[in-house]
Nucleic acid binder design. Sequence first.
DNA 1: CGTAATTTCATACTAAAGTATGAGTGCCGA
DNA 2: TCGGCACTCATACTTTAGTATGAAATTACG
Lengths: 143, 143
Amino acid sequence: MTKQIDLKSTLLYGISMAILLFLLKWLELRFVVFDHLFEVYAAIISVIFMVLGAWLMHNFQQRKLEKENAKQEIVAVPELGLSQREMEVLVFMSQGFTNQQIADKLFLSIHTIKTHGSNLFVKLDVKNRTQALVRAKELEILE
Amino acid sequence: MTKQIDLKSTLLYGISMAILLFLLKWLELRFVVFDHLFEVYAAIISVIFMVLGAWLMHNFQQRKLEKENAKQEIVAVPELGLSQREMEVLVFMSQGFTNQQIADKLFLSIHTIKTHGSNLFVKLDVKNRTQALVRAKELEILE
DNA sequence: CGTAATTTCATACTAAAGTATGAGTGCCGA
DNA sequence: TCGGCACTCATACTTTAGTATGAAATTACG
């Protein structure tokens, strides 16, 4: 399915049609005065509001992008307060082990590993283990 | 990034425009009968074309964004049979993004990302994304 | 031109991850 | 001694990840 659509040509097409309609009516007006004014207005309104809509969406997207970019600020944390166990869990995570595998290696319950994991993510300000690994390398507490 | 004119979508938009023109004509006929409702029709047309414009701009921005994301020049790894898309997904995974986030960035369904992920894991002989990252670095196809 | 590989999307499911909350234990320093 | 901290475990829950399977469109290639 072609979800990606040739929009440039389409936009061009739409505008062209509107302008063409406008021109036709404008020419027609020279002979038939004030008879079909509605179509003229409709064409004008169409063009104006299509452009307006495009402009509004453009601004909306722009703001959305700025917000996303602002999200990437790297927070400098000198003391993360990572405990011994949390560091161990983090290291095992970085080696690709699942929570269950880590639990087996440390002779702990998987619940405990999850708890350490959650606390870890809070301290690193991330949402999941892969993000935690990225952040840990940024902060140079791994590798 | 097909620079060829998408015949199918162009036709689709042509039909859409035809329908809109028909609508305009119909509105004109109604205008003859109820000439006091001009403002209502103008409002309807305004909304329709504003939405159309917003929608067109939205899609246009999407294509632009996708092109920007593709700027990283990610190359497929034939030795492992990794395709272009699989490499892209792998890179995004290595940056800590969730499947949903990757789907948003590539303007794909999350199902597609999962499919690429699964195929990726088979080719890398791993079970999950963290293991995939470890393996990818071992094979020096990342960083 | 036809065939294989790629890409996309979907449903339906299972597995794993992650959150929220509470609670018991032991250790250490004020 | 006592409060705080680290560690442990648990239940219950939501979310995300991953698998299996099928299908369809596109692309690449001989």
